[in-house]
């Protein structure tokens, strides 16, 4: 009755997982390596844009976006934040982080919005998806950091993959919620006028779910930024770098300016995307 006394481990799940990952790495590493190609290319493109653009142009671009979606005050705040980040010597890292965040959010949107729509329209799919999302949101990132590195090797792309795992669930959940919140009478009215399922989605459900989807995107951006430091642990560049380095060498000053830059970037991106909803 070993399994009732709990004196020793009777289910060697840890070994199974270890063996499973080892087996995957041994046999399918190339498959996983090729999976990361689209992310790699997108990231390279984004980084190239943000690093080659003169800082003034990047600042202007964000100030215009801030003005358009948030108004004068946000434009001022954006200009101030970016100037501060630049003058703290964090500009290059900030641009890397910005590329990573945008790249993560693009892939989150590509996966999350369709999954959210499916889960919003099918109860069965939602029931299947829910435990997966729960696991994604509650598993500490350090747990999946190692397998991700083993399968995809160290670097920024692995950081982005970990970020996607972490930042995807709120977008799926909020998209699904948005679809479900559309008044059933409106869907019924659309159907009564001969709308097919695709028309119902495109003409009624999606437009009305848009505020919720936007809130999901906003959450995804914020969560992606909060992953920046953890991603730096597996070799992703950007603003997480100085923070990790500062922690390792007890250089509190360095960690602080890295952290401050992340916070400023987060606030700017948050306020601008909040404006999308309106």
């Amino acid at each position: 009755m070993k399994w009732l006394t709990f004196d020793e481990q009777t289910i060697p799940l840890d070994d199974w997982v270890q063996d499973g990952i080892d087996w995957l790495v041994e046999n399918y590493r190339e498959v996983f390596q090729s999976l990361k190609v689209p992310i790699e290319k997108t990231l390279e493109g984004l980084e190239w844009i943000f690093h080659s653009l003169p800082p003034v142009v990047v600042i202007l671009l964000f100030v215009v976006l801030a003005w358009r979606f948030g108004g004068k005050r946000l434009a001022g705040f954006t200009a101030g934040s970016f100037l501060l980040v630049g003058n703290l010597g964090m500009w290059t890292d900030a641009m890397t982080t910005l590329s990573m965040v945008i790249c993560s959010v693009v892939f989150c949107a590509l996966m999350g919005i369709p999954l959210g729509i499916m889960s919003g329209r099918s109860d069965r799919f939602e029931v299947l998806l829910r435990p997966v999302l729960d696991a994604m949101q509650t598993t500490p990132p350090f747990v999946y950091l190692v397998p991700v590195v083993m399968l995809f090797s160290i670097g920024t792309v692995s950081g982005i993959l970990a970020t996607i795992i972490f930042a995807l669930p709120p977008l799926i959940r909020l998209t699904s919620l948005g679809i479900r919140q559309v008044h059933p009478e409106l869907v019924e009215a659309a159907v009564s006028f001969g709308a097919n399922p695709w028309q119902v989605l495109r003409k009624v459900q999606l437009p009305l779910a848009m505020p919720s989807v936007m809130a999901g995107l906003n959450q995804t951006i914020m969560m992606a930024l909060s992953m920046v430091v953890i991603a730096a642990l597996i070799g992703a560049g950007g603003l997480g770098g100085p923070v990790v380095q500062g922690l390792n060498t007890l250089d509190i000053g360095l960690a602080t300016i890295g952290g401050l830059s992340i916070v400023l970037l987060a606030m700017v991106l948050d306020r601008i995307t909040q404006g999308f909803k309106k």
Binding site: L186, A189, K203
Partner: peptide, 27 residues
């Protein structure tokens, strides 16, 4: 056949004209 609903069920994101044209758009 078309239908008129108790709760009106007009599309809040469309103008009055777009709402009136909804059935035709579907067709």
């Amino acid at each position: 056949m078309s239908m008129v609903f108790q709760s009106f069920a007009l599309m809040p994101h469309m103008t009055v004209l777009e709402n009136a044209a909804f059935g035709l758009e579907m067709a």
